[in-house]
Simulated assay, not measured.
Amino acid sequence: MSDWRERADASLDWLVDTSAVQRILVSLTSLAFAVLLGTVLVFVSGFVADCTDPFILLPGVGYGCYNPVEMYGTMFTGAFGSLTALGRTLQETTLLLFTGLSVAVAFRAGLFNIGTQGQLVLGALGAALTVLTLGERVPGNVLGALVVIPAGVVVGALVGGAWGAIPGVMKAYADAHEVITTIMLNFVATGIAFWAVQNHVGNLESDSVQTHAIPEIARLPASISGARFSIYALVGALAIAVAIYLLYTRTVLGYELRTSGIQETAAEYGGVNAKRNVVTSMTLSGALGGIAGAVYVMMVQYRWQAGIPALGFDGVAVSILASNNPLGVIPAALLFGGMKSGSVAVDLSLGVPNELVEVLRGLIILFIAMPEFFRALGKRAGYGAGGEAE
C-alpha cells in the first residue's frame, strides 16, 4: 500500500510541476487515447445496429454498420472541410470563447461560476430588446449600425454583470456557496426571460416564445458565405482573452482578484478588500456571459428565442480544458467548436445515432480534461514544488 501511495504522490508531484510543453504533450496523448477508445466503441456498436449497407462482415459475429475511420473523417470534414464548414466551426468557437472566458475569470479568482448560462440568457434578452428599440430610431446605414451593435453588446454585458453580481454578493457577505446560488439562478433567469417574452416583450403573434426579429443594422455581418459567423465577433473575443490574461498577470487589480477568492483572510491582512473583489470577479464573469448572449442574438439567432443552447455549460468544460488560462481558452474553444459542427455532419451524412456521437465528444472532453482536473486537485492539495502534501 505504501508503494502505491508513493507512486501516486510522485505522479501528482510531476503532474503539478509539468511545463507548458509537457501539458500539451499530455493533452495530445489523452486525445489519442480518446480517439482509440472511441474507434473501438463505434466499431462494436455497429454490430448491434440495423443498416442496409454494412461496411464489414465478420464470420460468426455478423455485419458491422459503422466505419470508425469514415466517421472521424466526416467529423473533420464537417468541421474544416469547406469554407462554409469552417464558418460554422468559427461561429461555435466565438460563442464558446466568451462563455469559456466567463467561467475562467471566476476560476482564476478561486470561484466556480456555474451561472454563465443564466447570465447569457438574460444578456441576450437585454441586447435583443435594446437593438429592437434603437433600430427604430437610428438611420438604417453604417452609422446606425455603429450605434446599435455596440449598445447591444454593452447592455448585454451590464445585464449579465448585474446577474453575476448577485451570487458574488451572497458569497462575499453571506458566505453562500456560489455553486449552489449560480445553479439556482440559472433556473430563475430562464424563467424570468421566458415569462417576459411570452407575456410582455415578445412577438405575441408567433406560436413560439420569441421576440421580433432584430433589424438588419443590428446583425453582425457574415464573413463566410453559408454561415452567420462574423470575424468582428471573433476578433473581439480574442482581444478580450488577451486583455483578461494581461489583467490577471500584469496588473495589481488582477493580483488582488486572484488572492481575494483563493485566500480571503490573507488578502484582507494584506490590505485588500476581499469581499469587494469577490463581487467584482463574479460581476466581470457575468458580464462576459452577457456579451456571449448579445453576440448569440446579433450573430446567430437574430432574435431572442426560448431554447438557447447550453453554451454556458459548455464554457465550463472549455475553461477546465484550458486550465482556466484565458489564452488557453482559445484552442480549447476551437476544439469544442470543431467537435460540435463536425458532429452535425456525422449525424446527417452517416446516420450514426446522435447519442453515439455525443458519447464520442464526451470521451474526448473527459480524456483531455481529466489530467488538468487532477493537476488542479493536486495543486490545491499541496503537491508539486510549490507546496507540500500532507
Rank of each mutant, 00 (worst) to 15 (best):
P139N: 04
V16E: 10
G46H: 07
F336W: 13
G62Q: 11
S281C: 10
D347A: 13
A104Y: 12
Y173V: 02
V26Q: 10
A333V: 09
F107A: 14
S349N: 15
V279D: 12
M184S: 09
V153D: 07
R276N: 03
S319G: 15
I180E: 02
E372Y: 13
V142M: 08
T93N: 05
L257G: 06
Y383K: 05
E92M: 09
L363Q: 11
L377S: 03
Y255Q: 04
A8E: 15
I262W: 08
T39N: 12
T29L: 14
F187Y: 15
A34D: 08
A128R: 00
W14L: 15
I365D: 06
T39A: 15
W4N: 14
P221T: 06
P371H: 11
V242E: 03
V318R: 02
Y296T: 00
G160T: 03
S82I: 00
T94E: 05
L185A: 06
G87Y: 12
V179S: 09
L377E: 11
T265D: 14
S223Q: 07
V295Q: 03
L134R: 00
G161P: 05
D53A: 12
I224T: 04
Y173I: 02
Q198R: 15
R7G: 14
A389K: 00
S2Q: 13
A385F: 13
T18N: 01
D347W: 11
I231A: 15
V169Y: 06
I56G: 00
T130L: 10
G315S: 07
R250C: 10
T280H: 05
G312K: 04
V155I: 11
L37V: 14
T190N: 14
G118V: 02
V201A: 14
R228V: 08
E390L: 08
S208R: 11
G144A: 06
L234K: 02
A106N: 12
L356P: 04
G191T: 08
I240D: 01
A196M: 15
V209M: 02
L95P: 01
G290R: 04
E256L: 12
G293F: 06
A124S: 11
T116Y: 00
G236Q: 04
M75Q: 06
F107S: 09
V121R: 01
D9N: 10
V295P: 00
A174G: 03
W163G: 02
S341I: 08
V44I: 15
L146Y: 01
A85S: 12
L234S: 03
K171F: 09
L146P: 00
E372T: 12
P353F: 10
I114D: 01
M282V: 12
I166K: 02
A274M: 10
I114M: 11
G38C: 13
T133A: 14
A106V: 10
E355F: 06
A241Q: 01
V346G: 12
I224K: 07
L83R: 08
F336H: 04
L83T: 00
G81F: 04
L86P: 01
V272P: 03
M282W: 08
A306L: 07
P167N: 07
Q117T: 00
G202W: 11
Q305P: 03
A127R: 02
T133L: 13
F187W: 13
P59S: 09
N273T: 03
A157V: 02
G123N: 05
I224L: 15
L120Y: 01
A306Q: 13
